[in-house]
Design a protein around this nucleic acid. Structure first.
Lengths: 191, 191
DNA sequence: GTCTATATGCGGATAGAC
DNA sequence: GTCTATCCGCATATAGAC
């Protein structure tokens, strides 16, 4: 009874996620994932027909992890507290697991967009921003918030804020959004 | 008199930038750059001792291009108009030359940070944001603005806004910043 | 279900000839 | 100053044995 290791898709994804996080690399190598599983690369093709299929599964796994943390942070009765806590949780995820976060964002977003986890994360953000503005399904506010948080996380990691540091830019931006979402005049104020 | 092609660092950087833009790739291949120059890969080592050295030079070139466009857009007397025009110009650069923009932002920022071009771009942003808030050297405002613009550009390209589109999120965010930078209470309002 | 062996391709970098 | 030739490493993916 040789060759009876018995892998599973979820086990492969789990190990792949751990590897991305540990190696701090954006790219996955089938050889490396297989090796971490105590197996050779060709074996993975029984479970994922291409490398891209595995990557998509990993991206969805990252979204599920993110969802879990955001839900916990969002368990707050006060809308403003909820908004701030979710923002902090988003940045904490990006900071502490940046390799996974980056893996998801650098090109894998579009593919993971249709997934259940993707919609759930988006809905969390949308609901929280809508609570602030008082408008149902406030896509504008959610888009602005997400852009700000994603940009901040990315620049912070890239060292874009330099020696001076962010200098309260995060708090200032969130404060401006909290005030600006509720008190805006018209929906489509053009530039 | 064979082998007398005579390259130059600036010529190599120029061709490398064109290649990144044309091929829409984040990575540079020395072979490909050399080929585009009508030369073989080892020749490049006369001008750049490593691949990384060339990449840094390219990143600086991208920053110079960006600076040029931002300066033009910022030639506006009214502070608010200037702020908006520079924001639009920033996004236009990221959109129309995304491969170059991405090349700069994905890990090359820290290296290009000390360059002259890097400081000049940052100062443009800093001055414009400071004009809005009325505070000299308003790092907080510049950090918030840059984060928002960078995040928006990245998510837009990645298809993160999905089928619904940004839905005015850009305008809403900029409006919130324009209002929020000037009318804030204290400098270090913590979350 | 996993293996070995292999096809095929990419990449950076160096030594030494011209 | 550029070349050829080469070393060395990485990768995805497939065929067919066990």
């Amino acid at each position: 009874m040789a060759y009876t290791k018995q892998l599973s898709p979820s086990e492969i994804v789990k190990v792949a996620m751990e590897m991305v996080e540990r190696e701090d690399t954006e790219g996955i190598s089938l050889r490396a994932v297989a090796s971490a599983l105590g197996v050779k690369a060709p074996s993975l093709y029984r479970y994922f027909s291409t490398k891209n299929a595995l990557e998509m599964a990993v991206a969805e796994g990252v979204l599920r992890s993110m969802y879990t943390e955001l839900v916990c942070a969002g368990a707050q009765p006060d809308p403003e507290t909820r908004f701030k806590e979710m923002a902090v949780a988003y940045l904490r995820f990006a900071r502490t697991r940046y390799a996974l976060y980056s893996f998801l964002m650098q090109g894998r977003l579009h593919g993971a967009y249709g997934s259940q986890a993707g919609k759930e994360v988006w809905n969390l953000l949308l609901e929280s921003a809508s609570q602030i503005s008082g408008r149902p399904d406030d896509t504008s506010a959610a888009v602005a918030t997400w852009s700000f948080l994603h940009g901040y996380a990315t620049l912070e990691h890239a060292g874009g804020f330099g020696k001076s540091g962010p200098h309260g830019g995060l708090e200032l931006g969130l404060r401006a959004f909290l005030d600006g979402f509720a008190n805006r005049q018209s929906d489509n104020a053009k530039l």
